[in-house]
Design a protein around this nucleic acid. Structure first.
Length: 222
DNA sequence: CAATAGATCATCT
DNA sequence: GATGATCTATTGC
């Protein structure tokens, strides 16, 4: 599967952030570990973080030392450290020259499961090796060393979704934020056991056509 | 099941 | 000095 997979090209990332976030569902994340070899997973959950009008986004205050890559070249990584303990992996993407990034929240492990299991001893089933943004970076060994790298060459690669049947994509509010908590910018594959938390008890809906964006505005904005 | 506490630090006010 | 795009263990129904 990995042998025939094609890297995502620049045009893929140069679209509205929420469109790219939805389109990443089903794509393959591949990380070359210098010691353990190839680790791979199929993306099953993402969240879009927009520009200054999105108060939940790191880009909201405008460019700073930490978030500057969100304003820079699409198709590169934005890795940050949070809660004194975890790293989060983002993909820079947007249509204009504003800012935007997509948090990779969960993947379905495909290769390197033994390495992931060693690093994620708390996981009791393979579906939970990377079923959350912090779990994923721990399983894949992603750290600050992976910040601001291209996704088009090792050690970080994003490959187009293989021509495989996948379940429908759904949208819901983002998780773990205070501001703009109603914006439906979380995307996940329905009925996939590798999606983080429970998708129940949350208002999720099937994604028809392009994802919602703030300009559409039926949602109550703070 | 659901709710909560604690770990732990880079970043920004 | 407070905050946070989290995870895990533990407690209580």
């Amino acid at each position: 599967m990995l042998a025939n997979a094609v890297p995502l090209e620049r045009a893929f990332y140069e679209r509205p952030t929420e469109v790219v976030a939805a389109a990443l569902i089903g794509a393959l994340l591949v990380v070359e570990d210098p010691v353990q070899g190839t680790l791979a997973g199929r993306i099953v959950e993402t969240e879009a973080y927009l520009d200054q009008k999105d108060r939940a986004s790191h880009a909201a205050p405008g460019p700073t030392a930490r978030n500057i890559v969100m304003f820079a070249e699409p198709g590169r990584s934005y890795v940050y450290f949070i809660y004194g303990m975890y790293h989060c992996l983002n993909v820079v993407a947007r249509a204009d020259r504003a800012a935007g990034a997509i948090l990779i929240r969960a993947v379905e492990p495909l290769a390197g499961l033994e390495t992931m299991a060693e690093r994620r001893s708390a996981a009791t089933r393979w579906q939970d090796l990377a079923s959350g943004p912090g779990k994923l970076t721990r399983a894949f060994g992603i750290s600050a060393a992976h910040h601001d790298l291209s996704f088009s060459e090792p050690p970080l690669r994003l490959l187009a979704a293989p021509d495989m049947p996948g379940n429908p994509v759904m949208a819901s509010p983002r998780i773990g934020i205070r501001h703009c908590a109603d914006w439906p910018l979380r995307f996940f594959e329905s009925n996939n056991p590798c999606v983080s938390r429970s998708m129940l008890n949350r208002t999720a809906h099937l994604l028809h056509g392009v994802p919602w964006s703030p300009e559409d505005t039926p949602i109550v904005r703070p």
